[in-house]
């Protein structure tokens, strides 16, 4: 691949970086990233990845844009209310960068479809809003050997970690989903819109670093921040031998939809 004059100008602030350069930008353009969820985390991630020149971006979401989304889901605009989120997101990404190939999946991820959706991508971003989906994404990526970025937000807090095969996965830290309704959702507890932006852009940066193969990913560590006190903290850990999916004797060998009732039973 050779960058044309337009691309050299468009991506000049990347190319001028010693750790990116023409070679790194070419890797970004050849890259394929899947974003699961076109919401608070997926919206900023999608905008930055399209702007960065990621060649193929998949976006998965079964919902339509709602008025209450616009406080943080910055890829959707007021006239998009009622439209499919994946269509709204695709349009904005193509407006930012007409060279990006956007593939839309207007559906939710389940055990039955996720392996097929993720298989063609280099890196996956979890921008979902519930534990069954977060654990399913982890299990699917571990079993398929795909790197992914976990992200979670609530109120003024955010957390993120990056999985690459061989390193600690989300279940190494959080074994099984918590009991239903114990952990409030953003809909119940609220979230500062900018917190979603902070976390989603961290996830986008991780995807870009993975594609260019430079820098230190958030592997074997969890980055947590609280925007109310504006404090950031990283906790290091190792792969957990007792991990239910990547441990030495894993109980999870195939994908299952984690109905919350099933998760609760497992906890007891």
């Amino acid at each position: 691949m050779t960058l044309n004059d337009q691309q050299i100008e468009r991506f000049s602030r990347h190319i001028i970086l010693n750790d990116v350069g023409v070679e790194g930008q070419e890797k970004i353009i050849a890259g394929k990233v899947l974003i699961i969820g076109a919401g608070g985390l997926g919206a900023p991630a999608a905008l930055y990845l399209a702007a960065a020149g990621v060649g193929t971006i998949g976006i998965v979401d079964g919902d339509e844009v709602d008025l209450s989304n616009l406080q943080r889901q910055v890829i959707h605009f007021t006239p998009d209310i009622g439209r499919a989120k994946v269509v709204s997101a695709k349009e904005k990404m193509e407006l930012i960068n007409p060279d990006v190939k956007v593939i839309t999946y207007k559906e939710r991820v389940f055990a039955s479809n996720i392996a097929d959706i993720i298989k063609d991508y280099d890196f996956i971003i979890d921008g979902t809003d519930n534990f069954p989906a977060k654990f399913l994404i982890n299990d699917a990526c571990v079993l398929a050997g795909k790197p992914f970025s976990h992200g979670g937000i609530l109120r003024f807090d955010g957390q993120t970690m990056t999985y690459v095969p061989g390193r600690a996965c989300y279940r190494c830290v959080f074994q099984n989903p918590p009991p239903k309704n114990l952990v409030p959702s953003c809909a119940q507890a609220g979230v500062l819109g900018a917190v979603a932006g902070m976390l989603g852009t961290i996830q986008a940066a991780e995807a870009l670093k993975y594609l260019i193969g430079k820098g230190e990913l958030l592997t074997d560590r969890l980055l947590m921040f609280n925007a109310f006190r504006m404090e950031f903290r990283t906790v290091n850990f190792r792969r957990n031998a007792d991990c239910p999916v990547c441990g030495s004797n894993p109980a999870i060998k195939e994908l299952k939809d984690c109905e919350q009732a099933v998760c609760e039973l497992k906890q007891k």
């Binding site: 969820g37 921008g127 918590p178």
Partner: peptide, 11 residues
């Protein structure tokens, strides 16, 4: 000792 909170939001 570290307490790592479950955080399920994202939308």
């Amino acid at each position: 000792i570290d307490f790592l909170y479950f955080m399920g939001g994202g939308r």
